[in-house]
Design a protein around this nucleic acid. Structure first.
Lengths: 143, 143
DNA sequence: GTCTATCAAATTGCGTGCGATTTAATCGTA
DNA sequence: TACGATTAAATCGCACGCAATTTGATAGAC
């Protein structure tokens, strides 16, 4: 019996809902650092690699310059990063951590465990969920 | 050895990334119906229950009136729904399907399977992912 | 060397999300 | 039956996301 799509039967909706609900939980943890969740993602990349181009950041978190440019400007206003055109290829903008931005990484160290404690999801299932999501993302990247 | 949070180790990021990537895949399927993804979610609810209040919709998809009001007005502009204050309690707004809106449900019947085909994710793993996400959402709802 | 194609960011316009506040209606209780 | 509390939507301000276009710089073909 064919019928119009039902919310309960979808896979995408729980993805969308869970994503937004978890980001809401992050909020009170990120607020003391003065970061939004997408800003936090960019900072995480830079805490690992202190300098990246806009494109490299975009490839890692699946955002393009139309989203990143304003976001990066906000991080620059907060003095967490600097943006500099690459000498020798002025098309490329290099984003790098400032001392303040690097220091913020230390303040963020306990965020993941605090978030995890709040959710109270079984660690085993969390790991399995993550690996399942990563396989899904790998498939989505192909298309 | 404590270190700043790393993107690879997070559970939330794959959630956020997968959600956005899947929504992107929906786009070309929804475009012929003239719907965005969140609008599609609302329509799915109404295809099941032809009349719901703004609050009821919000509870089901975790959005509040500040997001829903403008979205519902757009659906009304497209003549897919009507919004009417409830006689007897003027605080409540009843959202109901128009004939056009109901008819659109038939055009949407094959969207889920077409999307699923595009992703090419093993059905077994998809079901397991969905149930895991639903458990996660249940935990998130408690807080 | 010039001219076109390509490339990286930036810009623009629109649709969410969401915290915070406002508006209007109803409820509860003295 | 007043009147403060509560409730449901709406409004406002700000920060994403993303399609489409623009801007400016470099690369390639001739």
């Amino acid at each position: 019996m064919p019928h119009p799509p039902r919310l309960d039967e979808q896979v995408c909706f729980p993805l969308y809902a869970a994503s937004r609900l978890v980001i809401r939980l992050y909020q009170p943890l990120l607020e003391p650092l003065g970061l939004t969740y997408p800003q936090y993602l960019v900072m995480m990349l830079l805490w690992e690699d202190a300098s990246l181009t806009v494109s490299q950041i975009g490839q890692r978190i699946y955002l393009d310059s139309s989203t990143l440019t304003p976001l990066l400007k906000k991080l620059e206003d907060k003095a967490l990063i600097v943006r500099k055109r690459r000498p020798g290829d002025e098309r490329v903008v290099e984003v790098s951590l400032t001392k303040t931005g690097k220091a913020l990484g230390l303040e963020a160290i306990h965020i993941p465990e605090r978030l995890f404690a709040r959710i109270g999801f079984p660690p085993k299932e969390a790991l399995q969920l993550r690996s399942s999501l990563k396989r899904l993302i790998a498939r989505l990247e192909m298309t």
